[in-house]
Design a protein around this nucleic acid. Structure first.
Lengths: 175, 175
DNA sequence: TAATTTGTTTAGTAAATACTAAACGTACTA
DNA sequence: TAGTACGTTTAGTATTTACTAAACAAATTA
């Protein structure tokens, strides 16, 4: 016989796996899973209980989840504890994550390519004419690709409302 | 004064960083960078020379890059060495990667959710009516989200030709 | 068959990462 | 002011991962 706790635990375990497949800590997925299955916001101690992780792990991963927009802090009056609840609009979280990832790191990639490109165009090095032209062409192509990705993520993150309807209309275009 | 080798090395270093930002081995990015800056296909030993990695590392990462469609093996007649050249159509690589990632692991995520959902719908556990309805609703929402992602990636990977024009028309929709 | 040239695999290592356990800080309460 | 109830931070550990070095396999040539 499968108990209620076991069913929930299986799901939490599954989310844990999904999390690490996408390159996030397992604990992060587990915590989200626990919150997602709860109709009421949960405190840190309740999350310790529900996931089997320590308070430290919960504390750091709860912060990460909040930054991603996947959960939200909830305050109860006359209660010092912090409570958290799961965001149910995943598309909203996608936007938050794209915005975050955007600024920090992807720009560095583009920047790195542009730097090399500018050097070449300024005549750095002693490449013969033909090779310089070849290198410039390749780097420009790469830069354009990065810019395209950048445009898409920017467009998505700036939408007023991303949802199933937007996704469906995109799919329609792709056919 | 910046030498030709230094300029290339800087770029290779940059690609190495981009690679690890996207969750791939640094060596993978470095190898691609070296090939991308070469007008002629390169052998393993030339890649050892160009990247400073050992033959073993080159061997394994070259295989990974080939699977991703980011580079291609090239055979020269009457030459036992394996040569590789960079794919210059990045959109094509995106398709290859989506196809690969598709089958293996994402399905497991969807499967895990469906499993829990089916259990609940079959009456497993001893949840009261209200909670069971709540859980089923949440899991259905999650499943729909996963399905939407799945649809998008499937649609992209099945396009005859993905390119800058497709990307642009998608962006237009998003505005 | 022996020797050489190639790519692959394996065993070991170094580095990064995520977690635990416990100390710490802070703010409310008696 | 001492005590308690929280959340955060830190120090240490275990696990994973990517790499090196070297053994190995396979296939050509002498």
């Amino acid at each position: 016989m499968t108990t209620n706790a076991q069913i929930k635990q299986d799901f939490i375990q599954g989310m844990s796996g999904i999390s690490q497949f996408w390159g996030f800590p397992k604990a992060l997925g587990a915590i989200f899973g626990a919150l997602y299955l709860s109709s009421a916001p949960l405190s840190l101690d309740e999350l310790v209980e529900g996931t089997g992780l320590t308070k430290g792990a919960i504390s750091t991963n709860v912060r990460a989840l909040t930054r991603m927009g996947l959960i939200h802090p909830v305050t109860k009056l006359a209660d010092r504890k912090d409570y958290y609840e799961a965001e149910t609009d995943f598309y909203k979280s996608v936007q938050v994550m794209l915005q975050g990832r955007q600024n920090s790191e992807f720009d560095r990639a583009i920047h790195s390519v542009r730097e090399t490109l500018e050097q070449l165009e300024a005549g750095a090095g002693s490449f013969d004419k033909k090779e310089r032209a070849f290198l410039i062409e390749r780097l420009q192509a790469l830069q354009e690709f990065f810019n395209a990705i950048d445009s898409v993520t920017r467009a998505i993150s700036k939408l007023d409302r991303l949802g199933i309807h937007t996704v469906q209309s995109v799919i329609k275009i792709l056919k």
